[in-house]
Amino acid sequence: MENPATERLLLQENFTEEETTDDSRSTAHSISQDPWYQVGFILITSMNSAYVLGYSGIFMVPLGWVAGITGFIAAALISFYANYLLARLHQIDGLRHIRYRDLAGYIYGDNMYYFTWALQYINLFMSNVGYIILAGEAMKAIYTFYDNEGILKLPYCITITGIVCGIFALSIPHLSALRLWLGVSTLLSLIYIIVTIVLSIKDGFNNSSRDYEIPGSKTTKFFSSIGAAANIVFVYNSGMLPEIQVF
């Protein structure tokens, strides 16, 4: 079995010799012909789903208005520039790299290829575990709203959401197969966001006492601000730009 470096070199030689314009010959992996708006839905729905409404509590409360907004703008600019650099490296010497690990391996060698591969799957595993736990908590909250003394406990809710997530993952083998689900997810997210914003505005007008001071002692503020800054960096740099391309 050939190692990744040998495979990439052979692929590049074949591509150079044949000088074909077919996109499928310039990469080692099968690619899809998805429209730009489907890619946009994937990025928006996956990276900016309904949980963005929690940003005010995670970022703005520990940092305050000035530092919070400044941090958002700075992180957006840095993230844009970083993704721009990755996009420029997407195709090197006529060979396209549609995955982070392919790009890292081509530039830095096999060790970085496997290291990036491990980091990617750790990130995906932790993110999906977080989503499953969050979905279980939401399911438990809805159940408690209707039956406060029911037998459905939080571990059961997390187990149910995990099973549903696993079945869904097996049913959707790749991103291109999402299609209809992207529209459903986007619609539900928009409904949730709009309802939450309307209720927040209503509560804001009804609440006459407002306190925008950063809570906690000096030590608490210091560590909370560090955590908030780290969360901003994570949120703006968890995308999949080289792995989702429009052709």
Rank of each mutant, 00 (worst) to 15 (best):
K202N: 10
V184C: 12
G204V: 07
T159M: 12
I201V: 15
I197V: 15
G136I: 03
N206G: 09
L178N: 01
A169Q: 08
C157G: 01
N207T: 15
F168L: 13
C165V: 06
G150N: 14
N207F: 07
N206D: 13
L170K: 06
N128I: 10
S189D: 03
A177L: 05
I158A: 06
C157I: 02
G204P: 03
N128W: 06
S171I: 07
T159K: 00
G136E: 07
A138V: 02
G162M: 09
C157K: 01
S185L: 12
Y192F: 15
L187Q: 00
N128D: 12
I194D: 13
L154Q: 07
I167E: 05
F205Q: 09
I193L: 13
P155D: 04
H174M: 11
Y146R: 07
L152I: 15
A177F: 03
Y192V: 10
V129A: 11
T159Q: 00
I160L: 06
M139Q: 03
L199W: 04
F145I: 10
A177S: 14
A169W: 04
I172E: 09
D147F: 03
S176P: 03
I197K: 06
G204M: 14
G162H: 04
G183F: 03
I194P: 05
V195K: 05
K140S: 09
G130A: 10
I167R: 00
Y143H: 14
C157A: 11
I160R: 00
L188M: 12
R179P: 03
Y156I: 15
L190D: 07
L182W: 02
